[in-house]
Amino acid sequence: MSTDVLSDVLSAVRLTGSVFYDVSARSPWVAEAPPAAQIANEVTPGAQHAIEYHVVTSGSCWISLVDCGPFDPVRLNEGDIAVMPHGDPHALSSTQGMRAEPVPEIYRRPEDDNALPFMLHTGTEGPAETHLVCGFFSCDVRPFNPLLDSLPRFMRVGRNTSNAPGGLLDQFIRFATAETTSKRAGSQSILNKLSELMFVEVIRMHMDTLATDNTGWLAGLRDPLVGRVLALLHARPARAWTLEDLAAEAGASRSAMTERFSHLLGCAPIQYLTRWRMQIAARRLADRSAKIAAIAQDVGYESEAAFSRAFKKTVGQSPSEWRSRLS
């Protein structure tokens, strides 16, 4: 059995990339982004959550999280990628400490995708010294997104970390620069897919930097024992798993497995399984042609009633109420 748990989660929470801005900046300049919760639906109609990212393709700038408690400004250089997984408001500027009034209206997605990416020019006095490709990922946060919960507020990777020339991130920057410059037919689709690949690589690089005493879903995924348990649960979520079954297949004692899993993920394996089943079910409920009874069976419940009780207990709404909210 070989299950790519990270890919499974990214698919289930419907991670989708959207590139919006091709930015040329002349000093002095500043641009400020509002909280993602204010613009998620503008970025992608119906999106629960928006993750913003910025790629410096030439020049440099400063980035600061604003109104979010202590955060020292970070200098971004050519080849750096900054990601705000939790959608914190932030400012990009030529000099640290600059602020501007956010303009939420500019995040409204045009009806014609051929209008993307937007070409933006900011600043007026000096020569164009900084170029950025900026965009978003939309994803679900409810009922269950274990990846998002395990990511920090701010992530930065680049050539001065482990993004060596010729690596995946370096290739993303080169391709993104070429596509935003040429704006050939299909550029938006290519940029969307490239950005999704970039995000996966950023997550993998972040996993590689986790300390041995880190906790959370990514730490569990990296842990040999807990990683095996997660792979089992994701490979066969409809199976009537018991702790004894999981421990036997993972090659550990029940107590050792449960203790390690709970320490890293903050919940017991069967609790995790229930939450994951609800995420699978929530995605299936978006298909109005899918019968609730069939969804119940697909995620491991013998009856629609048992599934509905579990769904309402976990999510706070019945499956039919959740489906109605999606319309």
Rank of each mutant, 00 (worst) to 15 (best):
148 L>Y: 05
148 L>V: 00
148 L>W: 03
148 L>A: 03
148 L>M: 07
149 D>I: 04
149 D>Q: 13
149 D>K: 14
149 D>Y: 03
149 D>G: 14
149 D>L: 09
149 D>T: 06
149 D>V: 09
149 D>W: 04
150 S>V: 04
150 S>Q: 02
150 S>R: 04
150 S>Y: 03
150 S>A: 15
151 L>A: 08
151 L>K: 06
152 P>K: 10
152 P>R: 12
152 P>C: 11
152 P>I: 10
152 P>M: 13
153 R>C: 07
153 R>S: 15
153 R>G: 12
153 R>I: 01
153 R>E: 10
153 R>W: 05
154 F>D: 03
154 F>N: 01
155 M>N: 03
155 M>I: 15
155 M>D: 04
155 M>P: 14
156 R>W: 05
156 R>F: 06
156 R>S: 05
157 V>Y: 08
158 G>S: 09
158 G>I: 12
158 G>H: 07
158 G>R: 02
159 R>E: 10
160 N>P: 00
160 N>V: 10
160 N>A: 14
160 N>E: 15
160 N>I: 08
160 N>H: 15
161 T>Q: 14
161 T>N: 11
161 T>L: 12
161 T>D: 11
161 T>E: 12
162 S>T: 13
162 S>F: 08
162 S>K: 04
163 N>L: 07
163 N>Q: 04
164 A>F: 07
165 P>V: 14
165 P>W: 02
165 P>E: 03
165 P>G: 03
166 G>A: 06
166 G>D: 08
166 G>T: 07
166 G>K: 07
166 G>M: 12
166 G>Y: 06
166 G>H: 05
167 G>L: 05
167 G>A: 08
167 G>C: 09
167 G>Q: 05
167 G>D: 15
168 L>A: 15
168 L>H: 07
169 L>G: 02
169 L>V: 08
169 L>I: 13
169 L>C: 12
169 L>P: 00
169 L>D: 01
169 L>Y: 01
170 D>G: 14
170 D>E: 06
170 D>L: 02
170 D>K: 03
170 D>M: 03
170 D>V: 05
171 Q>H: 13
171 Q>K: 11
172 F>L: 02
173 I>D: 00
173 I>K: 00
173 I>F: 00
173 I>R: 06
173 I>P: 00
173 I>T: 08
173 I>N: 01
174 R>A: 09
174 R>P: 00
174 R>E: 12
174 R>Q: 12
174 R>C: 04
175 F>R: 09
175 F>H: 10
175 F>L: 13
175 F>I: 10
175 F>C: 12
175 F>M: 12
176 A>K: 02
176 A>T: 09
176 A>N: 05
177 T>L: 06
177 T>R: 12
177 T>Y: 05
177 T>S: 15
177 T>D: 13
177 T>C: 07
178 A>Q: 10
178 A>F: 13
178 A>M: 13
179 E>Y: 14
179 E>I: 08
179 E>V: 14
180 T>A: 15
180 T>W: 04
180 T>I: 05
180 T>E: 05
181 T>V: 01
181 T>N: 08
181 T>L: 07
181 T>C: 04
181 T>M: 11
181 T>A: 15
181 T>G: 13
181 T>H: 10
